[in-house]
Write a protein that binds this DNA or RNA. Structure first.
Lengths: 152, 152
DNA sequence: CTCTAACTTGAAGCGCGCTTCAACTCAAGG
DNA sequence: CCTTGAGTTGAAGCGCGCTTCAAGTTAGAG
C-alpha cells in the first residue's frame, strides 16, 4: 500500500531528517506502525503532525510543549482542522507576545541610539523584568538573572 | 580606589553571574586588570561592555558575533556613544528582520487557521526558504533542512 | 536467490551559553 | 594574626535539539 510512508519518504516530504523523525518519536511527538521486519511505516496523517511540529518550533515553542499540545487533543490523534485552529490560536498569542517584546526592544534601541547612555541602572534597555521571555528552543535568550539581591 | 570593581560588584551591578563574566573574559568579550593576588578588577567602562553584550543577545546575536563587533571598534576599547550608535544601528537591522519574519509567520498562521490545510507542499507556512533565520544564540530555530533533493 | 539501498538500535557527540564543582588562595575587618 | 567571605583555576556537566556512528537487519528490484 502506498498510503504508508517509509521514514525516508516522510523525511523527503517533510524536509525533516530521519534522525529527527526518530527523535520526535522517542519524545512521543509522532508515531509509526512497524512492518514485520520492524521498519517504521507512517500514516499520511503524520505529515500533518510533522508540519505542526515544525511550524510550532518557528513560533518558539519547545518540543516538550508541542508534545503536551498534541497530547491535549481530544481524540489523541493527528490534529484535525478544528484542532489545528485551536492550537494555532494558542501559538498566535505567543507569537504576538514575542513580536511585542522585540518591537519594544527595537524602540528602546532607537531611544538609546541617541543617548548612548547604556546605564545599567537607568536605561530601559536594561530592564530584564520586561524583556524577552523564552525565545527559541534550547536557548535562554532571556537570561534567568541569577540571585542578584540588588534588583535595581 | 573605588573605581575598580571586583567581579562580585560587577556581577551585582550588571545582573550577570560571575561565572558568566569569567566566561565572557575567556571568549575575549571583556577584560580585567589583576591585583597582586591575581583577582580581577574591572574598570567601570566594562559595565558598558557587559550592557552591550546583554542587549545584543536579546537582539539574537551570538557571543561570537558580539566579540567580532567589539573587536571592530577603532580604538579596540569599550564602546563610546558613537560606537554604540553604529553598532546599534547594525543590530537594529537584524531586529527589523526578525520582527518581519515573525510577523509574516503570524499572518501565515492567520491565513491557515481558516483553512486548516497544513499541506506541506503548498501551505505558505511550510516554505522554509523564507522562514526565520538564526534566531537566538545556540538555537537553530530555522532548521538547516538536511539534504532533501525534493525541494518542493 | 542475490544484491544493495534503506532501514534498525543504543550510545556518543555537537554547539551554545553558561553553571557547578573541588581544591585552593586572597582581602580585609575584628 | 586570624577568620571568613570572596576570589581563583580547570574540568566537567547541563539543556535542547538534534546528528553521527557502528554494527547489524530488511525490503524489494533484477
Amino acid at each position: 500500500m502506498t498510503d504508508l510512508l517509509t521514514i525516508g519518504e516522510l523525511s523527503v516530504r517533510s524536509g525533516v531528517a530521519p534522525s529527527a523523525l526518530r527523535y520526535y518519536e522517542r519524545l512521543g511527538l509522532i508515531r509509526a506502525d512497524r512492518t514485520g521486519g520492524n521498519q517504521r511505516r507512517y500514516a499520511r496523517a503524520e505529515l500533518r503532525r510533522v508540519a505542526f511540529i515544525r511550524i510550532s518550533q518557528q513560533v518558539g515553542v519547545s518540543l516538550d510543549e508541542i508534545r503536551a499540545a498534541l497530547e491535549s487533543l481530544p481524540g489523541g490523534r493527528t490534529p484535525s482542522p478544528q484542532d489545528w485552529e485551536r492550537l494555532s490560536a494558542n501559538w498566535r498569542g505567543r507569537l504576538d507576545e514575542r513580536i511585542r517584546l522585540l518591537t519594544k526592544l527595537r524602540d528602546d534601541l532607537d531611544g538609546c541610539i541617541g543617548c548612548g547612555c547604556l546605564s545599567l541602572q537607568r536605561c530601559t534597555l536594561n530592564n530584564p523584568g520586561d524583556a524577552l521571555a523564552g525565545e527559541g528552543p534550547g536557548a535562554r535568550l532571556m537570561l534567568p538573572r541569577p540571585a542578584s539581591p540588588d534588583g535595581e
